[in-house]
Write a protein that binds this DNA or RNA. Sequence first.
DNA 1: CGTGTAAGGAATTCTGACACG
DNA 2: CGTGTAAGGAATTCTGACACG
Lengths: 93, 93
Amino acid sequence: MPNSDYRSKKVISIGTVSELTGLSERQIRYYETRKLIFPERSKTGIRKYSFLDIERLIEIANHLEEGVWTQEIRKELKRREQLNMQEVSSSLL
Amino acid sequence: MPNSDYRSKKVISIGTVSELTGLSERQIRYYETRKLIFPERSKTGIRKYSFLDIERLIEIANHLEEGVWTQEIRKELKRREQLNMQEVSSSLL
DNA sequence: CGTGTAAGGAATTCTGACACG
DNA sequence: CGTGTAAGGAATTCTGACACG
């Protein structure tokens, strides 16, 4: 029953994401060009985000406030994902 | 930690709900006038739905296909909510 | 580098109504 | 009763660019 996929289902448009995160649409779009966030697109090109994306955006905003560059944030997020991959594969053993 | 509120957070607009449920926007709006579903509104009047609303819409659609009237569906949904209320209050004792 | 803004166009959503039945 | 549709307007989103620094 794929039911708790709600967290990662991309269904929220950018205006709502802006409200939920407190970030401007400009910022949210920019972080995409910096490869920090990966929304889906509707057939007509409208960006769709998940709750997970929103959590991630809030983290990104926190890092930026501390003066961390998007480039560094990207590296850290990548590192973290690799750790998650390891956990998953080891839990499968 | 209000984290699993994702299911009931109203953030999805009607076009996406239509895709996810297979219902037409016309149908979704109509069920609102029949008091079967209660979206929130953005300041500018745009309807916002939750994943829970989507689950509910699918149920409604199933009932309608079976020939049940919206009036009956409304009664049943109300009954069910009252049962839930009872569970909640008794679990608090 | 990260973000604001004005610009013009395309896609989305809204309401009230006519239609069928 | 439940749903489709055309109508006109309002709100949303998109991209590329200029600006500051």
